[in-house]
Design a protein around this nucleic acid. Structure first.
Lengths: 402, 402
DNA sequence: CCAACTTCCTTCGAAATCGAAGTCGAACTG
DNA sequence: CAGTTCGACTTCGATTTCGAAGGAAGTTGG
């Protein structure tokens, strides 16, 4: 199982060889069915632009390969009812590990993104990459032993990291508060350990993809802010995740206008993160005699109506909103989604929304949707599933030719 | 010639009908030859991924249609020399009008972007859209009457506007200092007047496309700042122009940190434009007794070593750089290009560069190229040609089936 | 209830595309 | 300089894809 595992790294073919410009048709059909965009041959034909006869041929192959099943009939659109096509339950699952600083959420999702099994794992990311990844992969293995997943092939593994990830190498780069992880080859190491293709991605980016695909699939450009103990941001441009050189979406080290000066861990004074992150809020509240170790405790204080907490959260919202005005003017998105555990604090979201509407160009806000997360805490898991699905051409082809 | 002109608006098919996902092959080949990416059948085959035999067939058709010509032989790569393929001189030209507040630069470019004729036109954009567009199109007609362009078909017209353009409708929206233009249907009007497909685009966006295609074709993500009497910005994401909802790239109305408060024409205090644009610099210098009506005169003052001018320009550079740090962290581009007439002021570019390197994340700047414009003042013209070429599927298909 | 229409899907000949084999022409090699 | 090798291009069956036609299974409306 470990043989040639290194060859399986997701994306390697894209980087190393000739870019295959023609889209892979069978994989495209699988994606359409998995995401629920199409559930009949006719819909596949309309969506893909292929001839109906070609679609029928392809679907027959995919049924033969065990990826699709035909099940009952769909709703009529005024004529003969379509024969409904679904993903086979045995088509495969993706494994996902969304790592935080002290906690990982593990899951097995099917190709369409539905949760098949979940687990939570406590650890400390500061123990370093080897120990962490071994524990994570062991737990994932245990997960697939249960829940009737024994006979379902595992098609890929995604790991969400709380720090910047270089998309080219699958390494974490210059992470703060993650000793031992800098430049560690996470993708290589995990791929060898697990023996399957591995995708490594920043957690806010996974969340952005999940929010987009699950809640805003028709919008082309959105930005998703993740407010937890840190401040993260993922950007969807033209329907695809924007990575830049791996650092795209960083908003936490923008300089803000403030009276008191606070030095940030990055070495500069008055970064947004030093004033408005969950960690900064916790410190502010601790100085006033409140204990709030985690962002959710801050939300509890706000919900309980503690005035100091509400004031602190409003102040943070104003600072975040001020930074976002520049980015909204520049990027001109269709929606701005606010997620992460702190997003449950109503006054925070309200203040951000107010700051943006007040200061942004009317042209930038006239059709701008500003909303709290709709996909909840599993948005990152969903996003990981979607990214893995989008990189599934290889194994789908392989399943067909076998 | 005016018959059905309205049907010709570029992009109308994209917006109104089914999105044709399959790329148009003959048009793709034309683009590869026009942009110089390929100049033989073999290169076309490699680049397009088509079989060599299919490419040969297509090329034969394109030669038959008068779009390609075969000319001599290319350099050997170790074997038989390729038969070089070029665009025919009679394949067609695009007309471009890059409008400023008081001046328009007009040009005819061939499909590859080479200038075939240019002209300059003085006017006042405040006279309103009808008069301006009539004058522009008349001048362009005159231009094609000369320079041996009588028998070359005109394949499209692009108009660059000094204000935001809604990509869906081809209308200018909420422009400042352009009375009468708001929501005027520029594309419709010009298409009817000229009888050819028309593309309307913001001038900074055209410049960004031109810079990218001409000077940084291998970079996926760049931002181009246009510093003239205003401050504009165009963004290339993943090799394509990012428009957002039409306002993307606005950086001029970001709030800055400053001692003195200046109200901006947008109604908010302390916008970047109110402090650091060419117009703002001119006002500052005028208050000190220097006359600098146009940005180029400011550059002259700086070049002449006038200390007040240099100081003002450095101050503007610092403000612009501060704003750009947030955007560079967020967008994480491969290059930041500074263009526009003010970019000839060395201290301005140097100060911007310094501010960014000082304050941005190392991760964002480690591979960031910060450069003055390489394509000069015709960057917008080039960009317009490229955009028109990218929308040329329809007429290319038509030329083949005729 | 039946005729007319819609939509879904398959069948089957036509057309496009591919790709292996072959030809051509130039550079390299000892 | 003659033989070899490489790459460019063409030829020509094999394969894939298309698309018009038709059957199947619905809805709609008098």
């Amino acid at each position: 199982m470990e043989v040639n595992a290194l060859l399986y790294q997701v994306g390697a073919c894209y980087l190393s060889g000739v870019r295959n410009s023609r889209e892979d048709q069978p994989a495209a059909l699988v994606r359409m069915v998995a995401t629920g965009q199409a559930e009949s041959r006719a819909e596949l034909a309309r969506l893909s632009g292929l001839a109906a006869s070609s679609v029928s041929l392809r679907v027959e192959q995919l049924i033969g390969a065990g990826l699709f099943v035909e099940e009952g009939a769909g709703a009529s659109r005024g004529g003969r009812r379509p024969r409904r096509i679904r993903l086979a339950r045995e088509a495969g699952v993706f494994l996902v590990a969304d790592l935080g600083a002290h906690h990982a959420r593990l899951a097995a999702v099917d190709l369409g993104g539905a949760l098949r099994a979940t687990a939570d794992l406590e650890f400390d990311i500061a123990v370093g990459p080897e120990g962490t990844l071994k524990a994570v992969i062991d737990s994932l293995r245990a997960l697939t032993g249960e829940h009737g997943l024994r006979d379902v092939p595992i098609r890929g593994l995604a790991i969400g990291m709380p720090g910047p990830v270089d998309p080219a190498t699958g390494q974490v780069v210059s992470p703060s508060r993650m000793p031992g992880w800098n430049d560690f080859p996470v993708r290589e190491f995990a791929a060898e350990l697990a023996g399957i293709p591995v995708l490594v991605e920043n957690d806010a980016n996974l969340m952005a993809v999940g929010e987009h695909r699950a809640s805003w699939p028709d919008l082309d450009n959105i930005m998703v802010i993740k407010l937890g103990s840190g401040i993260g941001c993922g950007v969807i441009v033209d329907g695809r995740l924007h990575r830049g050189r791996g650092a795209a979406g960083d908003i936490s080290h923008v300089r803000i206008r403030s009276e008191a000066t606070v030095d940030c861990s990055c070495g500069h004074p008055d970064c947004l993160e030093a004033h408005a992150s969950g960690a900064a809020l916790a410190a502010t509240l601790a100085a006033q005699g409140f204990t709030a170790d985690s962002p959710s405790q801050i939300v509890d204080l706000v919900t309980d109506g503690v005035p100091q907490a509400t004031a602190a959260v409003r102040n943070a919202g104003q600072l975040i909103g001020d930074v976002l005005t520049a980015l909204v003017n520049f990027f001109n998105p269709d929606a701005l989604v606010i997620g992460g555990s702190l997003s449950n604090a109503e006054p925070l979201v309200a203040t951000i929304r107010g700051a943006i509407y007040q200061r942004c160009l009317p042209l930038a806000t006239r059709n701008l949707e500003i909303s709290a997360s709709r996909s909840g805490r599993d948005a990152s898991i969903l996003g990981a599933g979607h990214l893995l699905l989008e990189q599934s051409d290889e194994w789908i082809d392989h399943a067909l030719t076998r």
